[in-house]
């Protein structure tokens, strides 16, 4: 199997959306274009249980075929990299599962295999997740309540690039924030291999209570290379297989 480029959006937020399209719907659309949506919900230190607004977090990630996690800000660094990696494995497993179905007939997935063969398949998945190229678009909610969390977000993103750059495969990151001044999202860093320059460029916060998560996600989707998206649109179901040149 040849590796292609995995595409992910990582949404970091602390509350529920209140403007524009339903983010779960947008996430579903994005997933159909071959891009995975992961969501991390950041809790206040004094919140002991999942607050109401953060229910959305899991829903968006489910719709986007990705992974979600709700954490306190101290755990953000490690969570960001775990979530990104888990999502990679999940996507690759999905691809392998499709292959298995192709070869062995419908109900065959990795989980249904006997442990012995499962081990061999997992080795392939692991090799792929080490060597595939990945593009991660980080979308950070910068509404007022995120203010005291942004320094930690910054640190977590630098840490993410440390983790990802230890891999054999190539990485590209870009960072956007929302709500933007005129558009739905604001570009902070354009596609680049390293994130160590984040420190100086995190923007000032947008005050006010608008959190247009849906429109922001939609706009983010369009930041991936246009050609890839079009091809996936045409091929619809087979897009994933196509990506991996299998």
């Amino acid at each position: 199997m040849k590796t292609g480029t995995l595409k992910q959006i990582l949404l970091i937020t602390d509350g529920c959306s209140n403007k524009g399209e339903d983010p779960s719907m947008v996430a579903t659309l994005i997933q159909q274009q071959g891009v995975t949506v992961n969501v991390i919900g950041v809790l206040e230190d004094d919140q002991s249980e999942n607050p109401v607004g953060l229910e959305e977090v899991e829903e968006i990630a489910l719709a986007g075929g990705g992974v979600s996690q709700i954490v306190y800000k101290q755990a953000l660094s490690q969570t960001v990299q775990t979530v990104t990696r888990q999502a990679m494995t999940q996507t690759l497993q999905g691809v392998v599962n499709k292959e298995l179905k192709h070869i062995l007939g419908d109900n065959q997935t990795i989980d249904a295999l006997p442990p012995e063969q499962r081990g061999e398949v997992m080795e392939v998945v692991e090799d792929l997740s080490e060597t595939s190229n990945i593009e991660v678009l980080v979308l950070v909610d910068t509404s007022a309540s995120m203010q005291n969390k942004l320094p930690t977000v910054k640190e977590a993103l630098i840490d993410l690039s440390v983790s990802m750059n230890a891999r054999i495969g190539k990485n590209r990151f870009s960072i956007y924030t929302f709500p933007g001044k005129r558009n739905a999202i604001n570009k902070v860093i354009d596609w680049s291999e390293k994130l160590d320059k984040v420190s100086s460029v995190f923007p000032k916060l947008t005050s006010g209570g608008i959190t247009p998560t849906g429109p922001a996600l939609k706009e983010a989707m369009h930041q991936f290379s246009k050609t890839g998206l079009l091809r996936s649109l045409k091929r619809d179901d087979e897009s994933n297989l196509e990506e991996f040149g299998s």
Binding site: L43, E49, S68, Q69, I70, V71, Y72, A75, Q78, T79
Partner: peptide, 8 residues
């Protein structure tokens, strides 16, 4: 570290 997350 992971025990700081609510889901496990």
């Amino acid at each position: 570290m992971m025990n700081q997350t609510l889901k496990n």
